[in-house]
């Protein structure tokens, strides 16, 4: 083989390998194709799940729950009593959430959620968790120094406000109900839902902004 040919061959080889999926992607293909062949999963279920959680299911679901809890005291009572049951009226409870518990912020109490083990999260009502929620730093520091973590998130929690940190598990996940901000009297559920942020439902935000809505 001439020098030109061997260079050409090496270039071709690199070209081919540049189209090779990553090691992780190949391992996932191996897992998925074997799991489908053995009848453990259906390919259409996987595709539908990926599409739903990439594009459609996000924190707006939780925001609607929070907004209703602000305008409908009977719903709020049901939600605090048994959130898994209460959110069924929205039609998106999803098995993925496991058992759900709603915890309410008040003038004298603040709630914050973490999963110290891995990343348990009510994703069927909040969508995929943010990167920081999965980080080792958050999982460790949220219990060790929660007030310092809150300060970094921009929450200046007064000393006299009690802080409770809830550790999620595979069976029990949490939804924080932030306080309804002043100046939103008379707003309908949709308008209220639009100001409820993801972080406020995890408890890393406390005072919701009403400007510009």
């Amino acid at each position: 083989m001439s020098t030109f040919d061997s260079k050409h061959a090496a270039g071709l080889h690199r070209h081919i390998h540049s189209h090779l999926p990553s090691d992780a992607a190949l391992r996932v293909k191996a897992l998925e194709s074997l799991a489908v062949e053995k009848g453990l999963i259906a390919p259409e279920t996987i595709d539908a799940w990926v599409e739903a959680y990439s594009d459609h299911i996000g924190p707006m679901r939780g925001a609607k729950v929070v907004a209703r809890s602000w305008v409908d005291p009977a719903f709020r009572a049901r939600l605090l009593e048994n959130a898994t049951e209460a959110i069924k009226e929205f039609g998106f409870e999803g098995n993925a959430t496991g058992h759900l518990k709603a915890v309410e912020n008040t003038a004298t109490a603040h709630n914050m959620v973490v999963c110290t083990l891995c990343s348990c999260y009510p994703f069927s009502i909040l969508g995929m968790s943010p990167a920081w929620y999965k980080s080792a730093a958050y999982r460790a520091r949220a219990v060790r120094e929660p007030r310092a973590v809150l300060a970094e998130f921009g929450v200046d929690l007064p000393e006299d406000v009690a802080l409770r940190v809830w550790d999620s598990t595979a069976e029990l996940r949490y939804l924080v109900l932030p306080q309804r901000p002043a100046g939103t009297e008379g707003w309908d559920e949709d308008r209220l839902a639009a100001i409820v942020t993801r972080n406020s439902m995890i408890g890393t935000e406390r005072v919701l902004a009403t400007g510009g809505t």
């Binding site: 992780a24 992607a25 996932v28 293909k29 998925e32 999963i41 996987i46």
Partner: peptide, 9 residues
């Protein structure tokens, strides 16, 4: 995409 597929599976 494989990250989504892992959680989906």
């Amino acid at each position: 995409p494989w990250q989504a597929q892992v959680l989906a599976m």
